[in-house]
Design a protein around this nucleic acid. Structure first.
Length: 555
RNA sequence: GCGCCCAUAGCUCAGUGGAAAGAGCGCCGGACUACGAAUCCGUAGGUCGCAGGUUCAAAUCCUGCUGGGCGCACCA
């Protein structure tokens, strides 16, 4: 619809220029927006004000000239007017709005889904938590965001690949192995000294018990340097499979699980260092190898090989991104916790160093989650290793509520997640407000069937002169915005727009429901209204699907 | 000290350079003998942190300041 209006304006501008009514043919693409106030029309444009200075004509006069030159051969507009400082407001004929309704029914789940043929390849990497402990609510926020962003990108015409990067090598995995080994020894009555920098959580003891059951006393006789890697491997695999289970319960899936260790095994890390060497972007200093990231805007150079010969985490991360870049994605999106923001400039420096445009990789930073219970901070002591896991949250408040609430806010703002509030099944909880729409409409559909009203052939029902209530037009106009909302959400990488939109549509529906009956004594009216509300149900279902929330028929 | 993010109604938060800044919660008052009251209707509530600047137009862009979160390793 916006494109169509923009096209009409462009045509009008050209016509006016040819007739000599406008002196310059330098026209930017007309921005079309939906005004906040209904009396300002269904759509409006500021084009007259934008070009006023280059045309040397007052905005109001330009607006008048444009309006006079609009042909509107399709009869789209019922009224076009100049308003305020030079806005052009468009009022759309009702029959065009009804065509939106028809589209929703014909396209079903595909409504608002971009049909472009050339699908750009996008990769979204998210969660990527180290397999050294269970997921917590912060990971949950990243998981909800990444999964939904991927779904939204898919819906707007991208080919999306979802990936989880597993840091299964390096020091922390060694520490994990040591932690488990010590707890294992403890189980056999050995006196141990458990260091502060080992993983403190009880889950380590659980793993040690499992290990003891499986291996008996075997690791006791082994030298530590042999036992630690074995313990580490065992523990990492166990933890990772727990992470996968949790994510599955959370409705989050990945196309690929990428192991850091593979980058070493395949020689990719060495190759990457060689390439940087070839490009003369590394140098030795104090026995270490440094990447000259300051050449690409980083604030200081970074070590990639330590003086003891070990590569840093950064080295394998560059190798990982090099690997991603070679997989030919048009866009690579990393979703990181905000505590990693200091990492962004150095990773982008490495992208440029490898000869790619730095914006090939975009990083979405997700601010932290404050977990609360009745407004008070919930136990969250990482030092003692005692924290509420994502799994516990899913068990307590449910997947749907957790996902909706974690996704509701802009990723830039920190989020308070209150367990008690999330559990409430009332009007404090927006997820049920939206789901209730779906259940209500489903209930109406069941009722209609009971009354012998067919809900199958609604498409054929004429409705233009039957759906005359203002609330009905509001619902249709709101639904017509769905594709645009999706596009915005994808462009700005902001999934929170989806739940907000759904709450708005839900609100319009509930108001309509309370004011008007769908099933009336008038069969034709009933069928027309069923046609309307079943379209609402489709949009609600589509939207909920994008954010991984179920659309229940009964609640 | 340096860097990134945030600051909008009592609270939690939306807001695409546009017209008069919005919603939910909370407060108060109301609505079911009809499709599900997990709903709806109504009232009140604002120096958009402060000060400059850009622009025909700024909550939105730029600069400075104040307050808060996070980060500044040959850790990951």
């Amino acid at each position: 619809m916006k494109e169509k209006i923009a096209f009409e304006i462009e045509q009008a501008l050209q016509r006016a220029f040819k007739k000599g009514e406008l002196p310059s043919s330098d026209f930017p693409y007309p921005e079309i927006e939906v005004p906040k106030i209904a009396s300002h029309g269904d759509f409006s444009t500021n084009i007259a004000m934008v070009i006023a200075s280059s045309q040397r004509i007052s905005p109001q006069n330009i607006a008048r000239i444009i309006i006079e030159n609009i042909k509107d051969s399709d009869g789209l507009f019922s009224r076009v007017e100049v308003a305020g400082p030079g806005f052009i407001n468009f009022f759309i004929n009702d029959s065009w709005w009804f065509s939106v309704l028809r589209e929703i029914h014909e396209q079903g789940p595909a409504f608002g889904i971009s049909k472009q043929k050339k699908r750009k390849k996008v990769q979204v990497e998210f969660v990527s938590a180290n397999p050294t402990g269970p997921l917590h609510v912060g990971h949950g926020r990243c998981a909800a965001l990444g999964d939904s962003l991927a779904a939204i990108l898919d819906a707007t015409g991208y080919e999306v690949q979802k990936e989880y990067y597993i840091n299964d090598s390096g020091r922390q995995i060694h520490t994990l192995g040591l932690s488990v080994l010590l707890r294992y020894k403890e189980l056999f009555g050995k006196k141990i000294d458990f260091p502060d920098d080992c993983y403190q959580g009880d889950y380590i003891i659980v793993l040690a018990k499992k290990l003891a059951q499986r291996e008996k006393r075997r690791y006791l006789e082994m030298p530590e340097e042999d036992a630690i890697p074995l313990c580490a491997k065992f523990a990492a695999r166990e933890i990772l499979s727990g992470i996968r289970e949790d994510l599955e319960l959370f409705g989050v899936s990945f196309d690929q699980w990428f192991h850091e260790q593979g980058l070493f095994d395949s020689g990719a890390v060495d190759e990457t260092i060689s390439e940087l060497r070839r490009r003369k972007l590394v140098y030795e200093h104090d026995g270490a190898l440094w990447f000259r990231s300051t050449a690409f805007g980083d604030e200081k150079d970074r070590v990639i090989v330590r003086s003891n010969g070990e590569t840093t985490y950064f080295a394998s991360d560059i190798a990982y991104h090099r690997h991603k870049l070679k997989r030919n994605f048009d866009q690579i999106i990393n979703i990181w916790g905000a505590d990693h923001h200091g990492y962004v400039s150095r990773i982008q420096a490495s992208i440029e160093a490898l000869g790619y445009p730095r914006d090939r990789v975009r990083v979405v930073l997700v601010q932290l989650v404050n977990l609360l219970r009745n407004g008070r901070p919930a136990a969250m002591s990482t030092r003692a290793g005692e924290f509420i896991t994502l799994r516990e949250i899913i068990d307590e408040v449910g997947k749907d509520a957790a996902r909706f609430l974690l996704l509701m806010h802009h990723s830039d703002s920190p989020l308070d997640f209150d367990l008690e509030a999330a559990k409430q099944q009332n009007n404090n909880n927006p997820v049920y407000y939206v789901q209730y729409v779906h259940a209500r409409i489903s209930s109406i559909m069941r009722k209609a069937k009971e009354q012998g009203i067919s809900t199958e052939d609604l498409v054929e029902t004429p409705h233009d002169d039957v759906l005359t209530q203002p609330e009905e037009m509001q619902l249709i106009k709101c639904m017509a915005r769905y594709p645009d909302m999706l596009a915005q959400s994808a462009l700005l990488m902001e999934p929170h727009r989806v739940p907000f939109y759904l709450m708005e549509l839900a609100s319009l529906f509930h108001a309509y429901y309370n004011k008007h009956r769908v099933l009336t004594g008038d069969a034709e009216l009933s069928r027309a209204r069923l046609y309307l509300v079943s379209a609402v149900r489709k949009i609600i279902r589509n939207g909920l699907q994008l954010i991984g929330v179920s659309a229940p028929e009964v609640m």
